[in-house]
Design a protein around this nucleic acid. Sequence first.
DNA 1: CAAAATTTAGAACAAATGTACTAATATTTT
DNA 2: AAAATATTAGTACATTTGTTCTAAATTTTG
Lengths: 193, 193
Amino acid sequence: MQTKDKILEAALALYNSNGVNNITTRHIAASINISAGNLHYHFKHTDDIIQALYDRLSGEFDGIISRIQQANIENLESLSAFAYESFELVYKYRFIFLGFVDIGARIPSIKAAYQQLMRKRKREFKGVFRLLVSNGTFRDDIPDTVWTALVTQIFIVADFWLSNNELTLQLEGKKAINHYTKVFEAMFFPYMR
Amino acid sequence: MQTKDKILEAALALYNSNGVNNITTRHIAASINISAGNLHYHFKHTDDIIQALYDRLSGEFDGIISRIQQANIENLESLSAFAYESFELVYKYRFIFLGFVDIGARIPSIKAAYQQLMRKRKREFKGVFRLLVSNGTFRDDIPDTVWTALVTQIFIVADFWLSNNELTLQLEGKKAINHYTKVFEAMFFPYMR
DNA sequence: CAAAATTTAGAACAAATGTACTAATATTTT
DNA sequence: AAAATATTAGTACATTTGTTCTAAATTTTG
């Protein structure tokens, strides 16, 4: 494997288990037996490592989206499948979601990319809801302001379930993903016909 | 005002506007024209300042709770009033909620206190829901697992709406509080009879 | 008012951290 | 094989940060 990839792999593992603020380039270098100088040959700045990991997350997320879009979301099962895959991805890159505000402030390009993604996802979700209403899956007596609020609620839960887990239950791996996927799915229950 | 209080006031303001990780004891001391040595006479460790601020938050929250409990929550209006006051408090101590995972990992006593508070609040909320169902305010065809999930959803939104705001809309002050209070209230809409 | 205490400023230290620089080694190209 | 390029280790430096120490100043107490 390329040194560059080894660095990213090691950084992800260390960031995930220790938090991005408690890991230095020296830690990452030591964990794969290379020098700090060598690491900084491949990544001039620490933030470049974080940026590269965010780009990977972003790419993998795009993969999920396009895979789902081919199947079309027209029932609750496909929405759940999407949720589960997303939650797995969030867990894989958990250090980002556990320190998102910090990282966003530190690396403006990440914040900007996230904001753009959010605006796109918001439109997509509203479209899916409209479909599921005309579909007969969802109730047709919900005002538009409530659908709009639901989208925000969804994004807050999707992005910060891990933070809640860290502060309360502290479930690990699949246990965490399964638990919070269920919490997420329950958000749609009272909207069903 | 006592030097100790001046320090806490200055720390809160600086933490809120710059993030807890970007402010040092030197910054806090300089902002109220005292020496760093003097600051460390009053608070031996930086974390003692954060702990003291968390204790203030905790105390103010207890105040809201007991004031509300005297009035009893038996309709949506009182629930909304409680939400609004809570959201104001979250905003006042926003640096904590914007860095909760970090702070919890750094100061275990804060994490422990939060966990205890959460367990208590969970029971209280479930009690309120049961009341509002037998009341006729909420629907009686919702399974218990969904009520349980709703409580978790509520806490995630209540604790991390600010983080979402920081990453997306970036509203300030009352604008943020008002917007997200509405998002929060909408969570109850589809449960109403 | 004198003694005791508290509070304060400022200097100093040690550890951590990001990153630049240098020289050696390894790899690729010609 | 020689030259050019890329990769690596190790050292070094500047900055930041939390904290400690000392001595002076201020306030409180007897």
